[in-house]
Amino acid sequence: MISEKKNLILRELEEGTGAAVSATEDFSGLRAGLRIWFSDFEVKHGPVAEMRAYGLRGHRVELTFGNFSGMVLDQIQRAQLEDIQLARALIKSIRPEVEVTIADQTLTDWTINSGAFRMTAKVRDQARPLEDSAIVATCRDVIVPMMAAMAELIGYDVIDDKPANEIAPYEGAILASTVKRRERNPRNRLLCIRLHGEKCIVCGVEPQHIYGEAGSIIEVHHLEPLATLTTPRPYDPETDLVPLCPNCHRAVHTRRPIPWGTDELRKMREELHG
């Protein structure tokens, strides 16, 4: 049963969304399933994803809101345009073979206006839907983008304990400051990879093909550095984010305050190596 894969599912969702996630078995339907929610909220106070078997060879995931989600819904309705764009892009990134529907709305301009919001995804044609590989695929391809989209709208962000412009007085010193650093947000990495793949756009290296399981080290680069923005602006993950291998990412940022452009770095490589 899917509920027996609880620990595997939680691990995949926490890694993919960057948020703490909880789950419990659900026996309310004909088939036992799993109810999944953000640990920061009780199950009745926020978005909940239910994962169940669908037919003999598939999974069904349905995202709804608990009966007492008023505060979270108010927060979502105050989301900035940038967060809305990212949330929609995450849902758009779900592979086309998965049937995704939103009650009474289209997938291009959906909004969450009330607790009646309902998003459903049906995954079909899985040879062995209860095997770990199939469970992981549904988590990564469907539940992660769904929950990550909700996290963007709610306002989850990653806290970095060390600002980039703060240097410890000596090696090993502990700095007590905290700064929000959107570029460290794992959901941005998720979007970048979904839209552009895991191949470095400068050198063409795809670390996962070289290092196997240890190769998930592709990095996300903002073409317009966040530090140079004089006023905040929404950004499009399809045009503003690109994947770079660690070497090229470090090379791009050797020029400050304006990093090298990816085209400039590619030209340098070509001049040196042909």
Rank of each mutant, 00 (worst) to 15 (best):
V142K: 01
D157C: 10
Y211Q: 13
G46L: 01
T254A: 04
E131L: 12
I167H: 03
S133W: 03
I76R: 02
D263K: 14
E206L: 05
K267G: 11
E219D: 02
T17Y: 04
D104F: 01
K92I: 00
D263S: 13
K5M: 00
L229Y: 10
K5H: 02
N7P: 00
V142R: 01
L244G: 05
A137D: 15
L265H: 03
Y170T: 15
A151H: 07
N185G: 04
K267E: 12
E183V: 05
A251P: 01
E183T: 06
G29A: 13
V179L: 13
T101S: 14
R256Y: 06
E131I: 10
T120S: 11
E42V: 00
I217N: 05
D236W: 13
R189C: 12
R60V: 12
Q75A: 06
H209V: 07
E264Q: 14
T254I: 03
A79N: 02
L195M: 11
R250A: 11
T106L: 12
R250T: 08
G215M: 11
H196K: 05
G115H: 02
P243K: 05
K44P: 07
V72P: 03
K162E: 12
D161C: 09
H273M: 13
T101N: 11
P129K: 04
T138K: 11
G115Y: 02
L86A: 12
D132S: 13
T239D: 13
R194T: 03
L8Q: 02
R187A: 09
S133M: 04
S93M: 06
V98E: 04
G261H: 09
A89R: 11
G115L: 03
F41L: 08
T24P: 00
L191I: 14
N113F: 01
M119G: 03
T101F: 09
E131W: 13
M146H: 15
Y54H: 13
G66H: 04
R95L: 15
L81V: 11
E198R: 14
A173K: 08
Y54I: 08
E166S: 03
M268R: 14
P225S: 11
Q105R: 02
A89E: 09
I135P: 12
R181Y: 06
K92W: 08
L73W: 00
S28K: 11
M147E: 06
S216H: 15
D263M: 12
R78N: 07
W110I: 01
D263N: 13
S114Y: 07
S93V: 07
C139W: 04
V158K: 15
R194F: 06
E206Y: 08
G261D: 09
C200K: 06
E50I: 01
T111G: 09
K122L: 14
R78V: 00
P129M: 10
I94G: 04
T120A: 05
I135F: 06
T178Y: 05
G70K: 07
Y156R: 09
Q75I: 00
G215F: 10
H45K: 15
T101W: 08
S3R: 01
S114C: 10
